[in-house]
């Protein structure tokens, strides 16, 4: 029987909402350099995400467009001008448009890759860390083997194997990249799970009669998942480089499927010797800026969310009764305490 005034029970945020609150709280409180780093990172990353979303409206031409709608072919290797803000390539495509469309590819692949590796790394890490024993050993062995494998080579092998199976280049690249990063999520989540598993509140949950599954989802997960945003952002930065590397080597997104900065860089190699700087410089800047943005975001989050690194927010302390005189000579008698 609900009491009549039960309506005042406030609607409460769900698990995700509460997690968000735990993350957003420290961000609002952050001060100093970490805050600056965090906001610069957010600004750069946010800009590229917006570019990716609005690419069709921003880009003046298609990513593979080499002629006007009227069928008039763009000139090759045109330096930056009013029609082609960043010039054209050897294939007569517009550099600016390819960078804008490229942002869309990068963001798509990175988001998918992060989701995939989270979807595998997080549950596997949780189970491995919580269960322990031989399962843990075997999983750690597999993940360490994956980790020890040169990451680009691994991505190439996966991309190569999948290229015949999957039609979508974006999906192929995303899967190839996630395989590279799963071990990192696994490690972070597993190690964190092992330390949380030893906390008394986990034993308390056992003593309450909770099943292992309940303990993992209700008690361990919420305390482990905090480390994920930082790893995810830093890995996202890294995976841009991997994607560009794949594209550079010709195993990434095929030119028919989308624009990709790494591929553009590769095509621009020959141009560099001929003094054609714009085909290489601008995709390069794009890669560097997105990677930097994500890294700053990750580092900023790390500083803000990691309580050990977080500097206490402290204002200089002033005694209310001591605005002017620093010496304070006449106050040595305890009897004068009453005056304050």
């Amino acid at each position: 029987m609900a009491a009549p005034d039960d309506s005042r029970v406030p609607r409460r945020p769900g698990l995700l909402g509460r997690q968000f609150r735990r993350v957003s709280g420290p961000i609002k409180e952050s001060r100093g350099l970490p805050r600056v780093v965090l906001w610069i990172g957010t600004a750069i990353t946010g800009m590229w995400v917006l570019v990716a979303i609005f690419a069709p409206w921003i880009a003046p031409y298609g990513y593979a467009q080499y002629q006007t709608a009227a069928g008039e072919r763009f000139p090759k290797h045109l330096p930056p001008n009013m029609d082609h803000l960043l010039g054209t390539t050897v294939q007569s495509t517009d550099v600016f448009s390819r960078i804008i469309w490229g942002a869309r590819t990068e963001v798509e692949v990175v988001i998918l890759a992060v989701l995939f590796s989270l979807a595998i790394g997080l549950p596997v890490g949780l189970i491995s860390g919580f269960k322990g024993g031989w399962l843990d050993r075997v999983l750690v062995l597999i993940m360490d083997a994956l980790f020890a494998f040169p990451y680009l080579l691994l991505a190439i092998v996966i991309a190569f194997l999948l290229s015949d199976v999957l039609a979508s280049g974006v999906l192929t690249a995303a899967i190839a990249i996630s395989v590279v990063y799963v071990p990192q999520y696994f490690r972070v989540v597993r190690n964190h799970t092992i330390s949380v598993r030893e906390e008394p509140f986990v034993e308390a949950a056992r003593a309450m009669g909770a099943r292992p599954r309940w303990i993992v989802t209700k008690y361990v997960f919420a305390n482990v998942v905090q480390s994920v945003p930082v790893v995810a952002t830093l890995n996202a930065a890294d995976s841009i480089l991997t994607l560009a590397g794949l594209g550079f080597l010709g195993y990434g997104i095929q030119p028919t499927q989308g624009a990709e900065w790494g591929y553009d860089l590769q095509r621009a190699i020959a141009d560099a010797g001929a003094g054609i700087w714009w085909t290489g410089l601008f995709p390069g800047i794009a890669i560097v800026s997105l990677v930097t943005g994500l890294t700053l975001l990750g580092e900023g989050l790390n500083d803000v969310l990691n309580p050990l690194l977080r500097p206490r927010r402290t204002e200089p302390v002033k005694f209310p009764d001591k605005q002017d005189d620093g010496a304070e000579t006449g106050r040595t008698q305890p009897e004068q305490r009453g005056k304050s």
């Binding site: 509460r18 509140f201 209700k218 008690y219 919420a222």
Partner: peptide
């Protein structure tokens, strides 16, 4: 330590 820091009392 025996209360889950991520859970409110309710």
């Amino acid at each position: 330590a025996s209360l889950n820091p991520a859970m409110d009392l309710r």
